[in-house]
């Protein structure tokens, strides 16, 4: 037989074995899974994404969130550590409250793409919708993660928000953040000493009134540098008067998707430990 043919057949055979074993067989094994329904009155679980959460999944994909955040909760028995008494323990995912149980294949029935993830530079998100159901928290965190966790290395996502002049009343969707986070969205703003001196000269009385409105028990001695700095620190935590930050359609969609991530919530018989 020709040498080329030997190599061709050999390459075909070895490769087919893994294709049949690792792809075709699991495809058959897992292809017929059905949603779970404990009794007829219950809604089947899982549910496909609905409404703007579908668009939110696109935003999650486009910005590569998966490359730092996994979406899988591992077993109680997975991964060992030692407690203060030197005793061996396992199962950090559930103890970190990343889910009530481990996730199983049925949890991902409607996921497409299925973003299990390979990295935990940030925490797992399989169950973030249950763990942190506040849309407002997610919005403020996405605009600038440092506003919620000073140690965070996650990027800011100011392009999912817009800063706009307030016309009439402040929008209900406006983010509840002090001006240090909103003047320069995505960054943390602080005036330079010269700018602050200028601001105090021009609008000192107004600024003091604003701060005292939100912190009425405080007193500021504006004749001292220390008093001026304290006033600045307080002022930075108060919201801007004329501007607000509201989510764009993409921002709303992404948060809707995050809140829809509730994988390890409904008990499944096969997920028992």
């Amino acid at each position: 037989m020709d040498r080329g043919m030997v190599i061709f057949l050999g390459a075909l055979f070895t490769f087919s074995s893994s294709w049949l074993g690792l792809i075709v067989f699991p495809f058959q094994q897992l292809g017929h899974e059905q949603p779970y329904q404990k009794s007829d009155s219950d809604d089947p679980y899982p549910q496909p994404l609905q409404g703007i959460a579908v668009a939110g999944k696109r935003v999650y994909q486009a910005n590569g969130c998966m490359y730092c955040h996994s979406q899988q909760v591992r077993s109680q028995r997975f991964g060992n550590w030692w407690d203060d008494n030197g005793e061996e323990r396992t199962g950090a995912d559930i103890k970190r409250s990343w889910g009530l149980r481990r996730t199983v294949s049925r949890d991902y029935l409607y996921d497409n793409p299925t973003m299990l993830g390979t990295m935990r530079t940030g925490p797992d998100l399989a169950n973030i919708g249950v763990r942190n159901p506040s849309a407002m928290w997610h919005h403020t965190h996405l605009l600038n993660p440092r506003s919620a966790n000073p140690w965070s290395i996650m990027p800011s996502f100011p392009y999912l928000y817009k800063r706009e002049k307030i016309v009439g009343d402040r929008s209900e969707k406006a983010l509840l953040l002090g001006r240090e986070w909103t003047v320069h969205p995505g960054y943390r703003w602080r005036p330079t000493p010269q700018q602050w001196d200028e601001l105090l000269r021009e609008r000192g009385a107004t600024i003091l009134r604003q701060v005292l409105a939100s912190a009425p028990t405080e007193t500021f001695d504006l004749t001292t540098a220390d008093g001026q700095k304290r006033l600045l620190d307080f002022w930075l935590t108060t919201p801007e008067e004329d501007y607000q930050i509201v989510p764009t359609a993409d921002g709303e969609a992404l948060v809707a998707y995050l809140l829809a991530l509730r994988k390890a919530e409904v008990p499944l018989p096969e997920a028992k430990e």
Binding site: N63, G64, M66, Y67, P155, S156, Y159, G186
Partner: peptide, 22 residues
């Protein structure tokens, strides 16, 4: 650099960490 200096070019959607990494 973005992973240890998260404010670097953080406002640009095109250069957000996830996209640059991909």
């Amino acid at each position: 650099v973005k992973l240890h200096t998260p404010y670097l070019l953080t406002a640009s959607p095109e250069l957000t960490f996830g996209r640059v990494r991909m």
